[in-house]
Amino acid sequence: MSLDKGTVKRVAQLARLRLDDEQLEKTAEELNKIFTWIEQLDEVDVSNIEPLASVTGHSLPERMDEVTDGNYPDRVLSNAPDRASNFFTVPKVVE
């Protein structure tokens, strides 16, 4: 398989990254090399093998569904690039 510039452009859009034409070209070339190398996994027979998502082997712990933290908006907002009272701000989304 081969990633063309169009595919890279689409993936970049999904990831909210912007690449200019020259970067698209270079990135497509690099990613193709990497995926060609990754394709050695085709040699492995994984039929009847379960996917492994976690190595811990234990199930996630549970706790009571109650508030254990919070109520300090100033701390939460202290790193906001821009804020309006107790809110983060974004460019206008709805006209």
Partner: peptide, 11 residues
Amino acid sequence: LKAQRVRSLIK
């Protein structure tokens, strides 16, 4: 998914 299956084999 394939990589997660190979990860099983590695483990």
